[in-house]
Design a protein around this nucleic acid. Sequence first.
RNA 1: GCGGGCGUGGCGGAAUGGUAGACGCAAAGGACUUAAAAUCCUUCGGAUGGAAACGUCCGUGCCGGUUCGAGUCCGGCCGCCCGCACCA
Length: 926
Amino acid sequence: MTADSSKTERYAARAAETRWQKLWDEQGIYATKNDDPRPKYYVLEMFPYPSGRIHMGHVRNYTMGDVVARFKRAMGHAVLHPMGWDAFGMPAENAAIDRKVHPKEWTYANIAAMKKQLQSMGLSLDWAREVATCDPSYYRHQQKMFLDFLKAGLVERKQSKVNWDPVDNTVLANEQVIDGRGWRSGALVEQRELIQWFFKISDYSKELLKALDGLDRWPDKVRLMQKNWIGKSEGLLVRFMLDAATVPSGETELEIFTTRPDTLFGAKFMAVAPDHPLATAAAARNPKLAEFIEECKRIGTSQEAIDTAEKMGFDTGIRAVHPLDPNWTLPVYVANFILMEYGTGAIFGCPAHDQRDLDFVNKYGLGNTPVVCPPNQDPATFVITDTAYDGDGKMINSRFLDGMSIDQAKEEVSKRLETTFLPPLEKGRSPVEARHASEDGRVGIIGDDRSPPRPSPFQGEGAQALAQSSNNAPVAQRQVNYRLRDWGISRQRYWGCPIPIIHCDKCGVVPVPASDLPVVLPDDINFDKPGNPLDRHPTWKNVKCPQCSGAARRETDTMDTFVDSSWYFARFTDPWNETSPTTPKAANEWLPVDQYIGGIEHAILHLLYSRFFTRAMHRTGHLNFDEPFAGLFTQGMVVHETYKSKSGDWIEPANVTIEGMGETRRAKLTSTGEALDIGSIEKMSKSKKNVVDPDDIIEAYGADTARWFMLSDSPPERDVIWTEEGVQGAWRFVQRLWRLNGEIARIAAPATRPAEFSEQALVVRKAAHRALNNVSDDIARLRFNRCVAHIYEFANALSDAIGSAETAPSPDFAWALREAGDILVRLFHPMMPHLAEECWAAMGHKTLVATEAWPQVEADLLVENTVTLPVQVNGKKRGDVTVAREAGEAEIKAAVLALDAVIKALDGKSPKKVIVVPQRIVNVVA
RNA sequence: GCGGGCGUGGCGGAAUGGUAGACGCAAAGGACUUAAAAUCCUUCGGAUGGAAACGUCCGUGCCGGUUCGAGUCCGGCCGCCCGCACCA
């Protein structure tokens, strides 16, 4: 039989795709029931922001998830594969300002448009569970949880620094501050202290860090990034007494945090942050210092300035007493490189072993004394000039520590200082407590008896004891410190979830009663003026206090949109529950998500917040586990070449014609023929215009082609380069599979399985089952590019077999070809579901391939009766031997030593050793 | 600066420590066609020997090491990418 493609019409992708999509939809085959008795599997892709159009990154992300969903369904699981919209956020407000569209209208129109696009991709999603975070039916539950968290002591209100745009009257995220100016207004950004709402994620620092170890189906990279972000460091809190003669009234001591107590004898100075209370106190009597502090704060706004800023300090004149030698005092500086937010906002400087401290002393001539001597260095001659030594070594110049290792010295100093006691501070006089009274801005919560004020700047263990000591307090306290800060969720914006709080002059901060939820965003707002429209709304803001019924005001801040996305995965398990955020039974059964797929850009914030939120939901009874995502996969980006005209404008690929190859490869503007510069390959972005619209691709080639190409070529975790050639290759393969299927469909095969198979039939069957085995394995491990390769290989083998077949193949061979065809269609179904349905129907099946079970591998067909082993002599390949599969080592050795190449290489001598690796290789050591 | 990852044909990339380059793309030659498209066949890391069959040598960024055997493991360089960044 020869291939007769003229009889098979080309596969009309678009027509077929809409037809099958309609049928799937009508039969509701992707809707998932919570009471489905089959084993549950939850696959989720990060839900999109409804910008209005999907992009290729979405196509790649959602195709991967869809392959997993379809595969697991075929493997007999009840699969939950939902989709929703991360629908609150700034772009909607920007559209309102720029185009006078209401954020709500804009958002819902975008959702409708994008939903249509997603549906054209043929994703096996359960749309009945669709949620949009901007819908009151979603955010009412979020408000409920906010109140639950508040009651559970997981929320607090405190003052914190923000980037404030004085023109737009709004808070800016760090990435919205460009060179110290607001990205929209261009105004110089100010640092302002605002009272804001915080989720106490730092209460979970230790737990979030520790639990990373258990996330063994997460990429190591992401776990490491989170580990670094949480930033655990173990050290010592040390109290330095201040020399009374040098101190502003009221100050008696300075508390610092250090991870290097071993280097205390190398101390040359103390330094505090410009906004440290001691600095403020000292500045009160020293105008020059006050001026210096002001300057530090000004420089502090722009990231670039921080990066390049020189170490600067100002001697306060205050002297601190060394905790290990009462006769030794150290100067106290205010320094621009000390952060108030970390530790106690104060340090002791040991220049010999810390580069920053060294830079500082070299500028101010304070000198340095090395106290750690590197191995193989003579302590007598070891000096530090401009490179600090932070490696291992033996203690020197350190009195009772001399000769110890760093670890021994740390232990010795810690032990001494934590058992040395100093008189306690007078009440209210501690710099630490003073700082909290003045800066923390904590406000008591009505009806909340579970959030006592915290006496220490630290969220870690150990701090309590130090601050609470009643009689004598130890000089030092071991302290585990974390870099992770509490999560500030207040946003001075309209298009977000309202924080369900009412401010009353009499009663203070009052939670909105649960029965009054949801607090719905008012629709009648305008963006004529800068700032938050909620704040100047005539009626919405003014309410009665739920406690005293007096006049009160609503909280006008809304929540960070990361809150919305921190629990949507749980909502999907029962989006119909109108009274609670979750139905615990459903959440506990479906979650954690078995496979979560999304971009690496969410490696820290979204994933960390979700991990916190799940714990908080656990604590407040909404579910009963801690980790939301058992398996995580981070896919690479879709990248494309860039094109630029001579006048410097970026040009879209759709308007570019490429000519020539390699050296002579040129790009020109299709319309005018103008020559263009071909630029680097970069992430598809609107600004570089190197985008390819999924709609155009689906229109021209169909969804299956786009899906297939997004899975081929590159490993899924790596970036994939979008090329026209690549799409066309995928398109050709779609057509080729269709033709191949047509040829197989025309073969008349017996209905019952033959008892015996000829060699010719066995070749086909082996190819089919080998492909089945490989593809199954690769999908399970998300190695989609290898699935693609194996399907190509299988299709090639099948084409060869058909090409070599007689006009009327024998019944056993015909049966084998039909079997192979059925397997092939089911193998590529998860990737190209529409083509698979079309082929399945053409093959005469009456069922939907989407509901078919995955084929069973016949293990017998995976093993060959004979095995060909490569033969090496001294590690270099010299030939092959073919032996029976179960041949013993002696038999194989004999065959190998009989090979001409081996005989020649041995040159009459006997081999030193013959290594036989069963089923693999033979190596003769001459 | 600190931390992590990656360097394999013209290109994207395969390869549980076991035949390096699967599979695809591009390219070249051929068949079919009035022609084109589509399709099919052949070649395709470098050097070299041979009429051919088929060989030989080199080759996974560079230098060393472990091993019967290294793209893979270890140490040191070079280059690129990513994350964090004055975190005490």
